[in-house]
Amino acid sequence: MHGRFVWHELMTSDPAAAAAFYAQVVGWTVEDSGMPGLDYRIASAGKDMVAGIMDMPPHLAESGARPHWLGYIGVNDVDAAAARLTAEGGAVHRAPEDIPGVGRFAVVSDPQGAVYCLFHASTPGAPAQPMATGHVGWNELMCGDVEEAMTFYHRLYDWQKDTAMDMGPLGTYQIFAVGGVGLGGMMRKPPEMPGPHRWQYYFTIEGLDGAGERVTAGGGQLLGQPMEVPGGAWIIPCLDPQGASFSLVSMAR
């Protein structure tokens, strides 16, 4: 599982409302994790656990952080990966620590400031099939320098360049893969996009228009029009009711 995204987690101002929203939009079943002293909810697509939903940690809320999604990249050794990351110009924001019975993790950022987590599971599971309904179907990095980012992630996680597409003024859209499986893409962050360089995650659903209607009915926002992308998929960027950014992807409009 080294180099693959193995978990996604929402830090939000209202976990109960967020759980209801994503259950409606994506079709998840959301249940309490049972972790003592922590409101942590597990979202599942069928029998597969795919994401966590938790209250925003106080120190982040006090610093003005908005609700956001985090991706967890699997590594063989969290401590070694964190040390390598700092040597390559990244930063460790939360030192490696254990989650009893679950695994070991650290919160980090790449040299351009995009935050994510390192993770090694106590009992690794099998990766989801690409574009499986209810799973994260695409992981997209908005950054300042695509070549620099690609070099960094290749050195740490052996990500390989896949197809590259010319996006005109926005530069190149670089798809990356691990073991021949496409995991996501990288592109230059548009200057009008607010906030820092960041990762954006695409949730796979069946029928983009219907899911978009569920977004607005649930109090979220659509940030653009449905767009068809190479390969025949349709996408649309969104905000949930608490302000966390995410996208939807479907093979059918």
Rank of each mutant, 00 (worst) to 15 (best):
Gly3Cys: 03
Gly3Asp: 09
Phe5Glu: 00
Met11Cys: 06
Ala16Thr: 05
Ala23Thr: 14
Thr29Leu: 02
Gly34Arg: 04
Met35Val: 08
Gly37Phe: 07
Ser44Met: 06
Lys47Pro: 12
His59Thr: 11
His59Trp: 08
Gly64Trp: 11
Gly64Cys: 10
Ala65Val: 03
Arg66His: 12
His68Asp: 00
His68Pro: 06
Tyr72His: 13
Ile73Glu: 00
Gly74Ala: 08
Asn76Glu: 15
Ala81Cys: 13
Ala81Pro: 01
Ala83His: 04
Gly89Ala: 09
Gly89Arg: 10
Gly89His: 12
Ala91Glu: 09
Val92Pro: 09
Ala95Leu: 12
Pro96Ile: 14
Val102Leu: 07
Val107Asn: 02
Asp110Lys: 02
Pro111Met: 08
Gln112Ala: 07
Gln112Thr: 05
Gly113Ala: 02
Val115Arg: 07
Val115Thr: 11
Ala121Trp: 01
Pro124Ile: 03
Ala128Trp: 00
Gly134Gln: 02
His135Val: 12
Asn139Pro: 04
Cys143Ala: 10
Cys143Tyr: 03
Gly144Asp: 15
Gly144Asn: 14
Ala149Pro: 04
Lys161Met: 03
Asp162Cys: 00
Thr163Asn: 06
Ala164Met: 04
Ala164Asn: 05
Met165Gly: 01
Asp166Tyr: 15
Leu170His: 12
Gln174Asn: 15
Val181Ile: 12
Gly182Pro: 12
Gly184Glu: 06
Met186Ile: 09
Pro191Lys: 13
Met193Leu: 13
Met193Thr: 14
Gly195Asn: 11
His197Trp: 02
Arg198Thr: 07
Tyr202Trp: 05
Thr204Ser: 07
Gly207Cys: 05
Gly207Val: 05
Gly212Cys: 05
Ala217Thr: 13
Ala217Asn: 15
Leu222Thr: 06
Gln225Ala: 14
Met227Phe: 00
Met227Thr: 15
Pro230Asp: 03
Ala233Thr: 03
Ile235Val: 15
Leu239Asp: 01
Pro241Tyr: 10
Gln242Gly: 02
Ser247Asp: 14
Ser250Ile: 12
Ser250Lys: 11
